[in-house]
Simulated assay, not measured.
Amino acid sequence: MATVTAPTSQTAPASIPPSVCTLAHTAQLEALYTIIRDKQTSRGDFLFYSDRIIRLLVEEGLNHLPVVPKSVKTPTGATYDGVGFEGKICGVSILRAGEAMEAGLREVCRSVRIGKILIQRDEETALPKLFYSKLPPDIAKRYVLLLDPMLATGGSAIKAVEVLLENGVPEERIIFINLISAPEGLRNFCSKYPKTRVITGWIDQGLNEKAYIIPGLGDFGERRYCL
């Protein structure tokens, strides 16, 4: 039986912005993405395997938080010189699809606070418009993990960061986490906010004439929430 030693279907732009980090593209990761991209995949399997990827993404996001030296006493009486996180964190999901990533964050960050932002397209201007936001009152003092599974044109993510900045969050304290990105969206987002770290699981080929990510996986929210 032939074996695959490394995935090759990733289509990335010639030059990824320096603020962008992708997951290590192992054969296992590509298998997970193949499952959630398949239109024949059941909703139950879509939930299970997309949650696996989300947890990997959150773990990678935490790797980019700053740490400070910290010494502790072990049960043997010895001293261990390690590190601890520098400050508090919170999650902010872009509704509605971003809510699907909240559980993965809670699984690895105990009692983490989570805010929500609702952004929709203004029918008159066709531009993203803020409709609702509820954020932790001390968010300006926290590192923020911004959650949204799909980055297409980048409009919603750009608007969400604008909201965070207006609430006092420094740009460099924001980490944007998503499952799939289009090169166009990455360029738009990173040119606007070069200090914000982007953690993405996969960079797809690009957008079609309807601004859908290709090959993509369809509407994440519909596949996640619709029976």
Rank of each mutant, 00 (worst) to 15 (best):
E30P: 02
T26E: 07
Q40C: 09
P13V: 03
C21Y: 08
E30G: 05
Y33L: 15
Q28E: 15
K39L: 07
T41K: 06
I35G: 00
G44C: 05
F48Q: 14
P17W: 04
A31G: 05
Q40K: 13
P17T: 03
G44H: 11
P13N: 06
A31H: 09
T22W: 11
T34S: 11
D38P: 03
R43H: 09
L23C: 15
L29V: 14
E30M: 06
L32G: 07
G44Y: 07
Q28F: 15
V20Y: 07
L23P: 06
P17D: 02
T41G: 10
L23E: 13
P18N: 09
T22D: 06
S15H: 10
F46K: 00
L23I: 08
S15L: 07
T41R: 12
R37Y: 01
H25Q: 15
S19L: 05
L32Q: 15
Y33C: 05
A31L: 00
I36M: 00
T22G: 08
P17K: 07
A31M: 05
P13F: 04
D45C: 08
A14K: 10
T26C: 05
L29Y: 03
F48S: 08
A27D: 13
E30T: 09
Q40P: 04
S19E: 06
T22L: 13
T26R: 01
S42K: 14
Y33P: 07
I35R: 03
D38S: 06
L47F: 02
R43N: 11
S19G: 05
G44I: 10
V20Q: 07
K39W: 02
H25S: 14
G44V: 11
P18S: 08
T34H: 04
G44E: 08
L23Q: 15
D38N: 14
A14P: 04
L47M: 02
Q28D: 15
V20G: 11
R37I: 01
H25C: 13
P18Y: 01
L32D: 11
T34V: 03
P13E: 03
L32V: 08
A24T: 14
A24W: 12
A31C: 00
L32K: 15
D38R: 00
T34R: 09
L32Y: 12
K39A: 10
L29K: 03
A27S: 14
Y33W: 10
Q28N: 14
T26F: 04
I16N: 01
H25N: 15
T22R: 12
T34A: 08
S19C: 10
L29R: 02
G44A: 09
P13W: 03
T41E: 09
A14D: 13
I16L: 08
F48C: 01
D45Q: 12
S42T: 13
F48W: 04
S19N: 15
C21A: 12
T34N: 07
H25I: 11
I36Q: 00
F48N: 09
R37E: 00
E30V: 02
V20C: 09
P18G: 06
P18Q: 07
P17N: 05
R43K: 15
I35E: 01
